[in-house]
Each structure stands twice: as C-alpha cells, then as structure tokens.
Nucleic acid binder design. Structure first.
Lengths: 193, 193
DNA sequence: CGTTAACATGAGCAACGGTTCCGCTTAGAC
DNA sequence: GTCTAAGCGGAACCGTTGCTCATGTTAACG
C-alpha cells in the first residue's frame, strides 16, 4: 500500500527531499541512528517541518535510507557475480566482502539497522532478498571450487558482517579495535581445511 | 582517589546497595545500557533517591558493574590457566572462550561497555589488565603448541568478543543470527594452517 | 502578471529520563 | 527509652528530542 503521488513533486520540493536524504545519510553514518532530526534538517538547510513533510516520522526516514543501502549492496554483489564468469571464485568472494566492508565501515547506522530496527528491515526486504540471492550464488561457487567450508550459509555471512559493523563503529568511536584484522580472521575461518 | 568511608555503612544501607547492584546487573543484562534508572530502582525495591545516594550518577553505577564483570572474567581465565598445567593447550583456549561466551551472551550491556563507555572502561582497568595478561598467557601456550596462528594477539580476541557481544544481543532481540555459529567460525580463523 | 495550491518555516508542545531536594523514617549508640 | 545522624522515598525539576501547526513564501499554470 505504497503512496503513489498523483502529481510529480514541485521542483523545490524534489530538491529539498534529496537534500534531506543526503543529510540524513551523512548524519546517521557519523553519529548512528540517534542523530537528531533537527541536526539532519540543519545539514540539509531546511526546517524540521520540511523534513516531516517528506517523511512522516524519523523511522520512515531511516527505513528509506536502509532500503537504498541494501539495494546498493545488492548491486555490488550482483556485479561481482557477473564479472567472475571465470576466475578464482574464492578470491571473487573475498574481494567482494572487502569491498562491502569498506562501505559498511563508513556507516555507523548500518549495524544498528541490521541488528534490530524492525521498520527499516521490513522496508528493505526487497534489497535483502536480492543481496541474499546474489551472495548465496557467489558462496556456492567458492564452495564448488573446494576453497570454502561446505557448511557456510548466507546467514553466516550476515552474522559476520553484523559483528563487523559494530566493531567498525566502536573503532571509529575510539575503541582499540581493528576491523581489518577482524575480517582477516573471520574470512580465514570460512576457508576449507 | 577512591572514597574510603570513615564509618561502615549502616546495615540497611548495605543491604539496599547490594539490591541496587543486583537489580542494575539484571536490568542492563536484559535491556542494555539504556535501561532506565527508575526501572532499576523499582526492581531493587527502593526509591531513585536511594540509588543516587549510593551512586552519584548512572554512569558510576555502570562503571561499578563493569569493574566487577571484568574481575570475574579475569578469574575465569586465570583459573583455566592453572588447570591447564598439562594438556591440549588449544582446547584449553577454546573451552575458556566458550565459557566466557556463555557469560557474555547473557549480558546485553557487555559490548556497549567495551565498545565505547569511557567511564566504565577506565574503572575496569585493573580487571582488564588481569584479563589481558591471563588471556595472553593462554594464547601463548596454544601458539607454542603450533595449533594457533602465530600472529594472534589479545587485541584480536577482544575484537572478536566485542563482535560476539553485539551478535548475541541482536539475536536476543530477535535478529536471525547465531552466536554459536559465529564463534565456531571465528575460532577456526584463529587456528594455524 | 495574478492566482492559488503546494510548500517551507521554526517556535512551541509533550513525553521522556536523569538528577535533585526535602520531609519523613529508622538503625544504632548511649 | 531517647536522641540523632544516616538513610530513604518519590514528587518535582529540567534538559533533551521527536513531532505539530499557524503563518509566511513561492513554483507553476493561465
């Protein structure tokens, strides 16, 4: 039951909406999900009222961003899937993960969404399914080549990436942690012996 | 510059302090660090004023609990270190980690503290040092036996456990994650090839 | 231009949660 | 038993934050 606008948005409204989305993405990435609405509006150069005209609630804004974020990730993995028509499938897998990691590490809000924001998770279900399908395919190839543990599932990958997101966030917040090291170890744990 | 009370606490005050600590531990374990002060007081069967008589601030309460938590963990690892005078040192290491994991998995607040609560981290520094020393020793043995990657440090273990804490918390909150699976993979990543 | 519906604004409202304060209670010393 | 300082309770306080609404502004169409 999505709201399909009868008339397209007025030019200024469209511009403002885009600004809000960009500002929110930046704010959430920096501060996490508890970035303040007023701060987002200020960054976007609009009033809070304008923000609320486009998104009925803060949750809805988060959900919209989550949706976009998942779609982008799915794009990345699907692209990797095509590029890797032939080649080392284990390496195709790991480089994809490292690429995703770079994106996720820059976004504090990521893990907060994955690990328990019902509205956002629901909104992003389409992207999540695409992501799951593509990742599973990449996974299957690496397993067929005998380089990856045979029992690894997509769920394992999302678990690892969820932990990853928190570690990256904590590191950014000043904790003595190292997300590269973490990924190195975790990926090693996925290899066949 | 710790405050040493000139006179011992009155009997009822001592009892109430213990109740507050227990209630706070339970509340933080269930809800995480944003458990409400009023809720903690209610669980303890005291007024908020009483809570604030014993702990000047919510942060201080968190710090006190963190301190105790780290000391307990250090106890666990030190005990393992003694038990393992002879035997399979890799297994000694992994069983210790699994034991710690059980404790940590039951406590949502754990990772929030490790990953960015300055007051608590500072208060727990003694326990952290004990924990670091004991874990490093356990680690060294497993490495000497050739079963663990030679480049693993204590920092790696705390990174892994930090991720672990968040995954366990998210799982408890309903996310489709599996902390046992995670540990299984991460520990495998620590083994030598 | 003139008109108007769409849009923007930001002070202000309400809820929430940590902290304080003061009148009352009680453990414990004599 | 009496006294008093230590302790207790919880209503009130206050800063914070998501959200609303009355008022002012402007894109877009004729």
């Amino acid at each position: 039951m999505s709201t399909i606008p009868q008339r397209p948005l007025r030019a200024d409204a469209r511009r403002n909406r885009a600004r809000v989305v960009a500002a929110a993405a930046a704010a959430f990435a920096e501060t996490g999900l508890d970035a303040q609405v007023e701060d987002i509006a200020r960054r976007a150069g609009v009033g809070v009222g304008t923000l609320y005209r486009h998104f009925p609630t803060k949750d809805a804004l988060v959900a919209a961003l989550a949706e976009e974020h998942f779609e982008r990730l799915a794009d990345t993995v699907e692209a990797a899937l095509e590029d890797d028509a032939s080649g080392d499938s284990w390496e195709a897998f790991t480089t994809t993960i490292w690429r995703i990691a770079d994106t996720v590490a820059a976004d504090v809000a990521w893990c907060e969404i994955v690990g328990g924001h019902p509205t956002a998770v629901q909104a992003a279900s389409r992207g999540q399914h695409r992501l799951a399908a593509a990742t599973s395919a990449l996974l299957a190839r690496a397993q067929e080549s005998g380089q990856m543990r045979a029992d690894v599932t997509f769920g394992d990958i999302s678990t690892i990436m969820c932990g990853f997101g928190h570690i990256a966030a904590a590191q950014r917040a000043g904790a003595a942690l190292d997300w590269k090291r973490y990924l190195d170890i975790a990926l090693d744990g996925l290899r066949a012996r």
